[in-house]
Nucleic acid binder design. Structure first.
Lengths: 251, 251
DNA sequence: GCAAAAGTGTTGTAATTACACCCATGG
DNA sequence: CCATGGGTGTAATTACAACACTTTTGC
């Protein structure tokens, strides 16, 4: 059985996912490292099966490459310039790993379609870095979080894709809802503020921020949190309903 | 020479354009009517050549199907549900027009690829209805403006695509810039207001609206306009720089 | 001079921003 | 009892909405 049979997929179209995680006031991006590639990383990406919707494909690809399941993914842009694919890189990779393909039972004909020009549909998500345990796929040798300000070398136009995803995320945070999958079940207002300040890269005043968020009328206050720290214990909050994280649209 | 040779295109991917035009406080959509299709309209759409970027493809397709050139197109969403393609309709159409294809020198094998599942990339634009003269393409029997509230029957999921384009347009108008290609070279504040009121479907107060728009600092005031009407002549405005309509991004 | 459409100024209210103070906790 | 981080109230500022009045023009 050929796992890379082009007949199963829509040709020349890929999906790339930008998974943002939040930890210690850092915004991080989840990047699996493909075994075959030397010192170059790629976004978790893949191809669309003939019998699945785009949204389903994005969720499946994300699960296959990172182990992350059941999260809200937002489609943000299609990348389709002629230069983006850099067929040279793909050709070099395929040529230098003939042995690997032999083991998988793939001929060079079988993987030739990977060298063609591709357009890629970008999805992004925000996840709670503590709620998610990345799993390393067969394809990959690692799957780690990287600070968005210190990303490793990315293949193709993936660095641009990350930046566009960040732009979209910021817009979303500004004009729609807060945190998505990012925050834990319960959280303090400071955690929300840290998130906003990190994503939007600007400071907020504590009291005004609280008012702004509570005015959205989507949080409810729980009991206080015991921290052990030498200060007043903060309240915990949670989302009023879970509808927000209902999942990707059916497209 | 086969104009529908699948080898020339990225398979199973199309582009659909929603062209909004503005006239007498009505928002209209430009819809070419394909000759073969009986009482059903489609958005001006087409396929992506192997050697062109997405943005270029969108502009080419728009020009081929409507004659409209050199405008700003905004990519807004990809449509990729399984149900959207309705292969039944496409099959019926192809079967019932075998004669046409014979004339064009196409066999049923040549057009079989059109029956497959497609994903479609949506672009929209706003144009000045008086600045644009739609041309009827070979494929079509007409190319007319339709009031967005009274659209003719649309094939596939094209009605949904129009609505999503309208949503995106409204968001854009709210949070980014004004009018795009829609307004003429010079225009009155009332024209801008009519545009906003029509697109956003809500009224504004004359003086407050003027302040809001001028505060954006993107318009400059010109001389007054002679209308011949029994009232004060309005000022004309124009965009401060033309950078706004620089054209589609290179993707 | 009057109606019609446009231009401009002024007020009142709502939303933001800034500042100030109080509370709980552990060392 | 004080340093730290959290909670809350209020004043100042700004933005926005509503209203009023003036100007130009053709009949």
């Amino acid at each position: 059985m050929n796992i890379l049979n082009k007949e199963d997929y829509i040709e020349q179209v890929s999906i790339d996912c930008v998974i943002f995680g939040f930890y210690e006031r850092q915004l991080r991006v989840l990047l699996p490292k493909i075994k075959f590639l030397k010192n170059i990383w790629t976004l978790p990406g893949g191809f669309i099966l003939q019998n699945e919707s785009l949204g389903h494909a994005a969720l499946r690809i994300l699960a296959e490459r990172t182990g992350i399941r059941d999260i809200y993914l937002e489609q943000f842009q299609v990348f389709g310039s002629l230069e983006r694919s850099s067929p040279g890189l793909m050709r070099d990779v395929l040529n230098s790993h003939k042995g690997v393909f032999d083991e998988l039972g793939l001929t060079s004909e079988d993987v030739k379609w990977l060298q063609r020009r591709f357009i890629s549909i970008g999805y992004y998500a925000l996840v709670d870095i503590h709620k998610v345990v990345p799993e390393i796929s067969e394809l990959d040798e690692s799957c780690e979080w990287y600070d968005i300000k210190e990303l490793p070398p990315l293949a193709f136009d993936h660095a641009e894709i990350v930046m566009k995803a960040l732009d979209s995320l910021r817009l979303m945070l500004n004009h729609k809802l807060i945190g998505f999958n990012l925050l834990p079940e319960t959280f303090t207002m400071k955690e929300v503020q840290d998130l906003y300040e990190t994503v939007l890269d600007k400071p907020f005043r504590r009291n005004n921020f609280q008012k702004m968020i509570l005015d959205l009328d989507i949080l409810e206050r729980m009991e206080k949190k015991f921290t052990g720290a030498a200060n007043k214990a903060p309240y915990l909050y949670r989302f009023k309903n879970k509808a927000i994280e209902a999942g990707v649209s059916i497209n």
